[in-house]
Amino acid sequence: MAKSNEPGWWSLFSAGGVVAALFLPITMFLTGIAVPIGWLSAESLRGLVHHPLTRLYLLLLISLPLFHWAHRFRYAAVDLGFKGLGGLLPAVCYGGAILGTVMAVFLLVRL
């Protein structure tokens, strides 16, 4: 059998799927509803973002869901008829997730 990176990408997809399923809805509720309607102040959320554990939380919540997107979107795009893109589609997807992870590390360390 030819060597394939598939299991590695699938593991990241799966880990991202779990993290997104468990943590994203409540986090989205905080940033998209609780703050705008005034239950939570943006300033206290901003303070929380600077805590080391929150930074780790945010790194996982940015990186893994990006890899989840990359792997799922790659195949969904083909299902929707985007064929003939060859290696470009996976390169853009996984490359985007890697770039997002590097940016997240950079921005979170810089805070």
């Binding site: 901003r46 945010l58 990006l66 990359a70 979170l108």
Partner: peptide, 27 residues
């Protein structure tokens, strides 16, 4: 297909968090 395309929103929110973190030093 709706299930597969939820990944766009999952990834999109990750990008939003990235922007938010990038702006977290300016109240």
């Amino acid at each position: 297909m709706v299930r597969e395309l939820t990944c766009v929103f999952v990834g999109g929110y990750a990008v939003f968090l990235l922007i938010l973190v990038g702006r977290a030093n300016d109240a």
